[in-house]
Design a protein around this nucleic acid. Structure first.
Lengths: 337, 337
DNA sequence: CCTGGCACTCGATTGACCGGAGTGCCAACT
DNA sequence: AGTTGGCACTCCGGTCAATCGAGTGCCAGG
């Protein structure tokens, strides 16, 4: 029973601190939240919580502040994901439905997320590796120049120019085209690559091999795999204090897309919203920032990841709800498209 | 003659203030710069300069700080663009030469610029409107589905899917293709659009018109026209003071690409590096930021614009040199590509 | 196990004070 | 006419002491 109250106290501390941005003391706590005990009792609980490492005081005779460990407990056991309001849901839905193509979907998602959470939003472009090949087209621009066009189920189109050593006859080209499509169409990337390599024999002097090589390269192209959209950086201005220590490394991380991918990547386990708090990750400089992320994609295949980056002191329930909601709507749109 | 010295004083003030970030007084001025007069004399000059609006004091009995007008005079008449060192030139050249495609060129330019100037760099993707059509390809994916591929002299490839109302026969398609290419290939966008509209008659029931419409839309597509790459936002962390007032609106502007385009666009007059200082532009919130930009493109056609955004208190000579140098190398690369 | 009371700590605020950098002006000098 | 040295004045910034108040820890009693 006192154990139960202690957790209630921790929850109250987290909520108050997130709201006020100031260390919270025993007196203010009993006033604002209706826990029916005296400040002294709360003080005892706080002392215990501090011993266990959930909260800390910035200096003697100041209020308490949650530690990373405290936030962790709060997120894992004390918070209930508060559902989005109907109005918010509608706003998300209509805004995202207005997108005209894949790029636009991602752009709008980033914007939506950053507005909902008032944090920096990060959305990874859908990965190719889980998507399937819809069609491969070979276009002869000149006898020895070929345009290879790869169309994927995600709506992404990749094209490459191939310079051939020797000219390629029209009927050879047609044969190659049908053969390639027979092998690759409908397969997911990984399958398509192996099928392609196996099914297409050499036709004339390495030309075919060159085409297949380029096609495989296009399929595995990590440039589009790793692409990332970032939005809402203006929200960083709200950091107020702790500026050089927190914002600078974060701004740097936001430009280092590789770092961002790693941050998000940790969080791609299916369906659930994942939270990385403070120094739990491998990046020293981001010790005072948290990441809230989740995977998304059609039919719950986690094609890619989206989420937000913000200070450890953030509204976790609301943020998690927003991230989850946006991920769901985006997934639905990708499903339809 | 005293007029001459006054300008020397102004120059000294600007240089000192940029270097030290502190209001500069008469005594420090005569010490650091070798102007052979007494502090009292300098004080008189400063009073005159203040009357004319070139400098101002933050408060009584403080040193002087340049006004926007002062910076303007400095940039227009007092500064000599200091040339880049050989090492810097080499660094720019080799780094940009490593680029593999157009996107990469832009990415690297942004990175290079932000590193050289330690400011936020902005590079606009080359505009279509000045480039020429290299080739148009029509690919039949199905009897009533057409892939339209547009290849431009800049190396940019745009593709569109067209759904036709009626099926299109293969020989009609071939005829259309040659007709389109005869009209458009080699022309700059604007010409190509009109030539296309004039030269291609209707073949069957509006199908051709649809294709041409899509093609024209692809040519004029403002998404690729307006695309912008931003880099070096971490340099904003050096703003130190005046944070909310300066950085927040700047971060917002950096995400509003339309605003950025306007800012850069003012500066696209051929060949020269343009400088917008403080409140000279239309944006109230950016009153304490300057833009240093220039056009770039093959053969000095200004295809697009690149530059940096930074505080009015910046090293204009060095920054202008860096912007000019990067623009030249990028232009050269586009020329070759 | 909770509670009221009490002494204690320590950051934050306030006000007084001082030193220094810088100015403006004037009279004297070249 | 332009330059210079001198001088009184202003005002910012830092320091120091005093005070306030929020908050704690602990203890004794319910």
């Amino acid at each position: 029973m006192q154990e139960e109250r202690r957790l209630a106290v921790l929850r109250a501390i987290v909520e108050d601190y997130v709201a006020t941005e100031e260390p919270v003391g025993s007196k203010a706590l009993v006033e604002r939240h209706g826990l029916g005990v005296s400040p002294a009792t709360v003080r005892n609980d706080m002392a215990a919580l501090e011993d266990e490492g959930y909260i800390t005081q910035p200096h003697t005779s100041a209020g308490r502040v949650p530690t990373d460990k405290g936030y962790r407990l709060f997120v894992d056991r004390l918070s209930t994901v508060k559902p989005m309001s109907a109005a918010e849901k509608r706003a998300i839905s209509t805004f995202l439905d207005g997108a005209v193509d894949l790029d636009d979907v991602v752009q709008r998602s980033v914007r939506m997320l950053s507005q909902l959470t008032r944090q920096v939003a990060v959305v990874q472009y859908p990965t190719l590796s889980r998507s399937t090949v819809r069609h491969v087209e070979l276009v002869s621009l000149a006898p020895n120049r070929l345009l290879v066009v790869l169309i994927l189920s995600t709506g992404r189109v990749e094209q490459r120019l191939v310079e051939l050593d020797a000219d390629l006859a029209d009927d050879d080209l047609a044969a190659l085209r049908t053969r390639i499509n027979r092998a690759a169409t409908g397969e997911i990337i990984a399958e398509a690559v192996t099928a392609l390599r196996a099914a297409v024999p050499e036709i004339d002097g390495g030309a075919t091999a060159a085409v297949v090589d380029v096609l495989v390269e296009a399929m595995l192209d990590h440039r589009s795999d790793g692409r990332i959209a970032v939005g809402g950086a203006a929200n960083l201005a709200r950091y107020g204090d702790s500026f050089d220590s927190a914002v600078r490394p974060l701004l740097e991380a936001l430009e280092e897309h590789v770092v961002l991918l790693k941050l998000l990547g940790e969080a791609s386990t299916g369906g659930m919203v994942t939270v990385r708090i403070g120094a739990e990750g491998p990046y020293e400089e981001l010790a005072s920032t948290s990441v809230v992320a989740t995977g998304y994609g059609p039919r719950d295949d986690a094609l890619a990841t989206l989420g937000i980056v913000g200070p450890t002191r953030m509204d976790y329930p609301g943020t998690m709800a927003a991230v989850r909601a946006v991920a769901r709507y985006v997934s639905r749109i990708l499903d339809e498209g």
